[in-house]
Write a protein that binds this DNA or RNA. Structure first.
Length: 739
DNA sequence: AACACCGCGTTTTTT
DNA sequence: ACGCGGTGTT
């Protein structure tokens, strides 16, 4: 067999990894070093050179997008669809296993997947049923408790409360939640993973079967795996398996949601025969950008170590712009985009990256008035919209009557006179009988527990679902959806909504019908009826509208969202201490290092030009604060930086109106000392009190000023006292003494 | 059942 | 500043 197509366009390091002898392999792949290429070529190599059956290969990613890309690239490499080879997300693969082995996994056949919003509703319902105060038992915290324990592989029954009554209650709620899920036949995201893990752990015959089958497991973005994902991987790989994992410790930015970079080191301990490869040649960025990123990341400790290099040019310097405020920052970016486009560039070459979503607003306003097309990534996705979830709830009830969450969602939608009181009666009956709401409703309408009107309305609802369910049998999927929208009255309901909001919702519902029309059921999951396959699909892949992704728009997104992408021109905005690194991470080393990796990720997105911008004054959450430039700017080798200053000295911006800024900015090479030295413009409104200054307070002792707000006697300062911690003080009364 | 008001939180996101 | 969720009013 001719293996040239697999190997010809690989560099030495990539080729070594792709052709590594069968056995455990770890590829440390730097940003832009051809990680996906190595992964896909390795699969092709296994099949064509090692004679491995595609049937024996399991490739795991984190996002559907990555899985789709991998599938497409393997197809083009092999010249045919990868067919029987399993490629999917951790959750997708766990789901597939649970569908196949629902019985052994202790699930019902028609189990449904719930997203985190549904999960939270269910938790709230439990809290209400337990008559617990939601301000004391915050649903989000309960949800976090449950999910993080599941991520660590812990069931409620494994947990010990010790002497902690709060923890005891949390554990109780976790157990109640597990019960409710079992009763209603729903499975949340974390449960998919944990269940799939337990399925293999507790069914040795099944595990043996899959171990035998999947001798070759490939994992993308390995640094993002959490405890349960890694445990699952170890189970399936077993002693003799050949896990091939690719990751980059410097791009680990999801520690806060349970990802464990430590798995990289652990992998070496668990598989002593491990072969390690480093991919350090970068094909994306200029030498200067790489030098900046390398320089920054060396400030982190405990790295596995990696230095990116390129055979290409140094390119242009990193440009730093110190804006007066966030509007000035946006205006500067606008101006640079205009220049880029005027020179024949495309809008979509440009990415605006920021730490938190709230920062997009100023840019959006500015782009709107400048008529610059843009697209903001993130935000509500199609299948997360309320009207779509309502429609899906009807479909879910058709598929599984026991789905209480869906029942509650639509029992009175469109309104049919089943109010809070009737529902409470119903919940009580369900609780008493230990049955789902559906069965409780069937029983209750035969009694006089409800008023005659409510009982009739409820009967109408039950009949509606039964009628729909019967009517829809055998129809094509999109006709089922269409029929349901009609018969349920959902379309009518939204049409009656006079505002154009209603119109948009009707359009979305029609969009749902076309989504159903275009839905191709996965060839490997043919056992599942189309409706159920569709429901699982929409929950697992909430669908990013890909349609307009290629339009010529400036791309705006958070740094996290940008991971894995690349753009010719990148603006890292809001480079201020407190914003990036974020205030909440600044205090602890791990948090700060994760922020630094995030900055590294941001820098390495840039191909040709990288801008770092910050605002000396920023209005956030309605209050102005003064900030220092991000420490990440200072950690960037200064000789790579060119500072940009406005050519005209302009008066400090006034609260209202645009400031008279001519269109040009001058580039001036920076002097090492430029950062950290106070600037005369944007002097804080409280004399003598500036950020970082040391002050003494009569009672609290000495501390450092963290924040300033307002002016005059009402002005407030935030001071971090050495002994008393952080406090807000009103200047008028505080009597602070500068040191 | 629809609407007004109040109070709270406010990093990052996938599945 | 702003949006969301929960509560109370008409």
């Amino acid at each position: 067999m001719n293996l040239d197509p697999i190997l010809e366009r690989l560099n030495a390091a990539q080729r070594a990894a792709v052709t590594a002898p069968l056995g455990p392999v770890l590829v440390l792949a730097g940003a832009g070093s051809g990680k996906t290429r190595v992964l896909t070529h390795r699969i092709a190599w296994l099949i064509q050179a090692e004679g491995v059956s595609p049937h024996a290969i399991l490739a795991v990613t984190f996002t559907n997008k990555a899985a789709g890309e991998m599938r497409a690239r393997i197809e083009s490499l092999l010249g045919m669809p990868p067919g029987v080879l399993w490629i999917g997300t951790f959750h997708g693969i766990a789901h597939r296993l649970l569908r196949r082995h629902w019985h052994e996994a202790g699930l019902i056949e028609s189990f449904q997947i719930i997203d985190s919003e549904d999960q939270q509703r269910l938790i709230k319902k439990i809290l209400r049923a337990q008559q617990l105060d939601e301000t004391r038992w915050v649903p989000r915290e309960v949800q976090w408790f449950i999910n993080s324990n599941k991520d660590e592989g812990r069931r409620a029954k494994h947990l010990k409360a010790g002497n902690d009554p709060i923890r005891a209650q949390m554990i109780r709620l976790y157990a109640l939640y597990e019960e409710a899920c079992a009763l209603t036949g729903v499975v949340d995201f974390a449960e998919l993973l944990l269940r799939a893990f337990e399925l293999w752990r507790d069914q040795p015959a099944l595990l043996a079967h899959y171990r035998q089958r999947f001798r070759h497991i490939l994992v993308d973005e390995f640094q993002d795996t959490n405890t349960i994902q890694y445990a699952w991987l170890k189970l399936i790989a077993g002693e003799g398996g050949c896990p091939f994992v690719v990751g980059d410790d410097d791009q680990s930015v999801y520690g806060w949601r349970g990802a464990r970079v430590e798995n990289l080191q652990q992998f070496g301990r668990d598989f002593p025969a491990l072969k390690l490869f480093r991919l350090e040649q970068n094909y994306r960025s200029t030498g200067t950008i790489l030098a900046a990123a390398n320089g920054l990341i060396t400030n982190n400790s405990g790295r596995l170590g990696k230095t990116l290099w390129t055979s290409g040019d140094d390119g242009e310097p990193i440009r730093v712009y110190a804006a007066f405020n966030e509007r000035d920052e946006a205006e500067f970016v606008c101006q640079r985009i205009r220049e880029h486009v005027a020179h024949g560039g495309l809008h979509r070459d440009v990415a605006i990256l920021y730490r938190s979503n709230a920062q997009s607003r100023v840019f959006e306003e500015m782009f709107l008035s400048a008529r610059i097309p843009y697209r903001v990534y993130g935000g509500l996705r199609f299948f997360e919209r309320a009207e779509i979830k309502d429609a899906l709830a009807y479909l879910r009830l058709i598929a599984n009557r026991r789905d209480d969450a869906s029942f509650e969602r639509v029992v009175n939608l469109p309104t049919r006179g089943i109010g809070a009181k009737s529902l409470e009666t119903l919940r009580g009956a369900a609780r008493a009988a230990g049955s789902p709401l559906w069965e409780a409703a069937q029983a209750t309408i035969e009694t006089d527990a409800l008023g005659p009107k409510a009982a009739a309305a409820l009967r109408g609802f039950l009949e509606l679902i039964e009628r729909l369910s019967a009517e829809v049998q055998g129809l094509a999927l999109h006709e089922q959806v269409d029929r349901m929208l009609e018969v349920s009255g959902l379309i009518e309901f939204h049409k009656r909504d006079k505002a154009d909001r209603g119109e948009a919702r009707v359009e979305n519902l029609e969009e749902l019908v076309s989504a159903a029309r275009g839905f191709q059921t996965d060839s490997l999951d043919t056992e599942l009826p189309p409706l159920e396959a569709f429901l699982a699909h929409v929950t697992l892949e909430s669908g990013e509208g890909q349609a307009d992704a290629w339009e010529d728009c400036v791309q705006m997104m958070t740094l996290h969202t940008a991971k894995g992408l690349e753009f010719p021109i990148v603006f890292l905005t809001g480079m201020e201490d407190g914003l990036f690194p974020h205030q909440r991470s600044i205090g602890d080393l791990d948090g700060l290092e994760e922020e630094r990796r995030l900055c590294y990720v941001g820098m390495t997105r840039a191909m040709k030009q990288l801008y770092l911008t910050y605002a000396e004054q920023r209005r956030l959450h309605g209050i102005d604060s003064y900030s220092q430039p991000s420490r990440f700017i200072k950690e960037t080798p200064q000789e790579l930086i060119e500072e940009i200053r406005p050519r005209l000295q302009v008066a400090r911006p006034v609260a209202s109106g645009r400031f008279a800024r001519e269109s040009s900015y001058d580039s001036v090479p920076v002097h090492r000392s430029s950062y950290g030295t106070p600037r005369s413009r944007a002097e804080p409104p409280i004399p003598g009190m500036r950020l970082g200054a040391r002050v003494r307070h009569g009672k609290f002792g000495e501390g450092v000023i963290l924040n300033l707000e307002g002016s005059g006697p009402q002005a407030r300062v935030q001071v971090n006292f050495e002994r008393q911690g952080t406090k807000w003080l009103v200047m008028q009364f505080a009597n602070l003494e500068p040191l």
